[in-house]
Design a protein around this nucleic acid. Sequence first.
DNA 1: ATTCCACAGGAAGCGACGGCCC
DNA 2: GGGCCGTCGCTTCCTGTGGAAT
Length: 391
Amino acid sequence: MEVQKTLTELFDTLLRRETIFRNKEALRHTYTPEHLPHREREISRLARILVSPLRGETPSNVFIYGKTGTGKTAVAKFVGRELKQVGEKKQIPIEVVYINCVEVDTRYRVLANLAYTFGEEVPLTGWPTDQVYKSFFNSVDSEERFVVIILDEIDKLVKKSGDDVLYNLTRMNSELRNSKVSVVGITNDLKLVDYLDPRVKSSLSQEEIVFEPYNALQLRDILGERAKIAFKDGVVTKEAINLCAALAAQEHGDARRALDLLRISGEIAEEEGSQRVEESHVRKAKEKLEQDRIIEVIRTLPKQSKLVLYSVLLLGRPSSTGEVYDLYRDLCHRTGVEVLTQRRVSDLISELDMLGIINAKVVSKGRYGRTKEISLGVPPEKVSKALEELI
DNA sequence: ATTCCACAGGAAGCGACGGCCC
DNA sequence: GGGCCGTCGCTTCCTGTGGAAT
């Protein structure tokens, strides 16, 4: 009874407590704002390129470069949305398809996804890929229209499955009778072009737009605008916004990170019952963000990767692939886990490196061979804390 | 200049799995 | 149910290589 009563009281106070947020959604990166500060040039470039088919010209394909959180996706989605509205007004059918290649990372899946948005029923797997392509092709060409295909994080797709799909998509126009297709490729890998087939390269980079990172001042403007939507008036202090901007600017001007910081800061402030978001909340938010990321990443790691990571942790000093592998094999025997080959473990090490949990640098020790120098990339306490519950 | 270590990392391919088709 | 197909995690086999030691 006692517990129930206090719990009810807790809910009551929580519900009664006034939230400092007006619309928290505005701080999520899925949100596409009405106005994108400091990206006017990029927006008009992209719009000008994509609008040309409406004037009867052949559509161009576009390549967009820029680091994470520089607004590439936001600009592409924004222009796509506007374009669609223009089309509706002028009675020209325009379809904008957005695909994120992180999950959709094979030829089959891209085509299946496209076919699906044009109303085709394609199974997740099973069909020959050419059949999926035909199905997509026919349904696109079934009526006169203009299609913009936005392929976000296209580097993931190319590195995993090659550029065959891009070859298909960029060549489509010569075979389509009724419709026209533009491909917008977005990537944060500036070297991606080197992986591409020359034919794909030339047709995809007919137009190129480069997004420079935001500086602290620009981030401040962006945060300011979003804060106006997300929070109630006068809640966020200028200092808090400046700090968020400064911290994110240090990390190559990542606006996404700046927004995350501000959102978490707000949540922390609210939890503490504060009516204002201040610098101290931002500092705590920074700490929490890092902590959460590490723990979440480690927790969702497959068993084998955890053992590899545990080996690196136990060694406690920069070690070679061989050393890590020996200890890993030991741990496997002791825990009754099947042992993978060194080749595979080498790949697992590279994956952990990419996740930022460990640092793996290829070094040559001359006569004593070439190996990776492997060390933890995050504080060991956090790793052992995240690992201990699951080993 | 040559040798040679301890791997890196590419290529091919295998088997299991989930899912299509007829 | 049998014949395909694509994907995933993995093994096997392989060639390549930076630089200390000779």
